[in-house]
Design a protein around this nucleic acid. Structure first.
Length: 458
RNA sequence: GAGGUUGUAGCUCAGUUGGUUAGAGCGUCGGAUUGUGGUUCCGAAGGUCGCGGGUUCGAGACCCGUCUUCCUCCCCA
């Protein structure tokens, strides 16, 4: 026997029933995106390394899949860098291309490159796989699909509101019973850093604060101490641990806390505006929550920050996003503000599977099976088959005159709804037997009646 | 990137202190059943024990390496 085949870690094959479910999910998502005025684009699966590197922080760079140069280009390898143990530089000399790590950075590149062809505000959606050289875990893959919606060229808060509505509409339509849409604002985080006198270390501060619900007050304090924060700074951070209550209550507490920080107050104003509008409009199943500890590692966010978690399942965030004012500036186009969100298709799929939210009929890839009795009967079936298929029904004829038991078993395994039996008896009478595979009920029909019935049933 | 964990038939798993020919259930295929499926009964096929090396008279079991699984960090969808 040959060596057993395998696929790389963190990747998966999808069986027909799984693809059907995924397509159902994508169709639902696309339909919502379209109604909000977003149009689809696509970008290459790999970009120049220089496009991606340095955009996701040090951690992110480590997780980017590099594509090894091929052929003579291998000679460009920077052996001096290797000798000096400068592995990043050595890697860069070996790999000029890399698989995309998300859809946001390639989109920023896309906008800059096609700026003269686009009408702003430019609203696009993009559903494509991304790759991360991460350690696989529950709900974490090395290849997974993101569904992004972004709008660039406007800093109107209306879009934050719109994206919250999209979160709510998509996830409600997919049937998630409950989910929290957590929102924060980078300006509020900047304000906190300012109030604490730790503006320079805002990243360390927010990363620690982000873990509050996981490691608790003491854990955060310990982490801050390890990072070298002074006791004085930590004392100023501590009150934040106990800001609880309704969104409004938290906003009010923050307003007092950030009274001295202009940027912090600006962030609060923005957030308040989004809350006010959402309260006016209402949400279906989502709950919008002000989470002042929400930070997210991506350092390009400048305004709103979003994260969505499904209730009732053990799973990390299923969606994320935020506003970025300077992303296109990295590619040479300044003054273009963007805001966008991303649906983690694979995690949402896992959540929906766990909660059994996919419609049953998605398991059906064949509606009608014609039982095969031999070449004469088969010819007759082929004609009927053409009519049935023209009605948009998925139908097929069993390939040979195998035992009926076997043919019905095949129908069962494929979860077929109906079988058509045309043997010598039926053919002689100009009739056919139409069998409901769920109830087992069977009726005799003329071919004309059969087609009429098909039109009604499907 | 750090630490732990897992791998035996298509799937879920047994396999004793190292000892003859590695087992079960489910699934698959064939038959009972030449025009009716899901049930039942009978039978069969299917394994380089993840891969490579080592210890041993002898390794599925012990040791090392490697890949993979799942988990905790890190980070994230």
């Amino acid at each position: 026997m040959a060596q057993k085949p395998a696929i790389p870690k963190g990747t998966r094959d999808f069986l027909p029933t799984e693809v059907a479910k995924r397509n159902f999910m994508f169709a639902t998502i696309k339909e919502v995106f379209r109604r909000y005025g977003y149009a689809p684009i696509e970008t290459p699966s790999f970009e120049l390394s220089s496009t991606l590197l340095g955009k996701y922080g040090e951690e992110g760079d480590r997780l980017i899949f590099r594509i090894l140069n091929s052929g003579e280009k291998m000679r460009k390898a920077d052996l001096d860098a290797l000798a000096q143990d400068n592995l990043p530089r050595f890697a860069n000399s070996l790999a000029e291309k890399a698989l995309r790590y998300d859809l946001t950075v390639p989109f920023a590149r896309f906008v800059v490159q096609h700026q003269n062809d686009l009408t702003f505000p430019f609203k696009r959606y993009q559903i494509q796989p991304v790759w991360r050289a991460d350690r696989p875990q529950h709900g974490r893959y090395q290849e997974f699909t993101q569904c992004d919606v972004d709008v660039v060229g406007s800093d109107a808060l209306m879009y934050e509101v719109e994206l919250v509505q999209i979160f709510d509409e998509v996830l409600s339509k997919l049937g998630l019973p409950g989910f929290s849409i957590q929102i924060n604002n980078r300006k509020i985080l900047s304000g906190i850093a300012e109030v604490c006198g730790e503006t320079a270390r805002i990243v360390d501060l927010t990363v620690a604060l982000d873990k509050l619900d996981k490691i608790g007050d003491e854990g955060v304090v310990t982490e801050l101490e390890q990072k070298g924060f002074t006791a004085e700074s930590i004392e100023k951070i501590k009150p934040l641990f106990h800001f609880e209550g309704t969104n409004e209550a938290k906003l009010n507490l923050m307003r007092a806390y950030l009274a001295e920080s202009e940027i912090g107050l600006k962030g609060l104003d923005e957030l308040s505006e989004v809350f006010a509008q959402i309260n006016e409009l209402g949400l279906q199943r989502g709950e919008l929550i002000f989470d002042l500890t929400l930070a997210r590692g991506l350092n390009y966010y400048t305004g709103a920050i979003f994260e969505v978690k499904a209730q009732g399942v053990k799973m990390g965030s299923i969606c994320g996003g935020g506003r970025y004012d300077d992303l296109t500036a990295l590619f040479g186009l300044k003054g273009l503000s963007g805001v966008g969100i991303s649906f983690g298709a694979d995690r949402i799929y896992d959540v929906m599977t766990e909660l059994s939210l996919f419609p049953k009929e998605l398991d059906r890839t064949l509606d009608i099976l014609f039982v095969n009795f031999g070449s004469e009967e088969a010819k007759y079936c082929m004609k009927l088959l053409r009519e049935v298929r023209n009605l948009g029904i998925a139908a097929e004829l069993y390939p040979n005159a195998a035992k009926m038991q076997k043919q019905f078993k095949y129908a069962n395994d494929r979860n077929v709804a109906y079988c058509v039996v045309i043997g010598a008896e039926e053919a002689a009478a100009g009739m056919l037997s139409f069998k409901n595979m769920e109830t087992g009920a069977q009726e005799q029909l003329s071919s004309a009646d059969f087609l009429t019935k098909c039109g009604q049933l499907f």
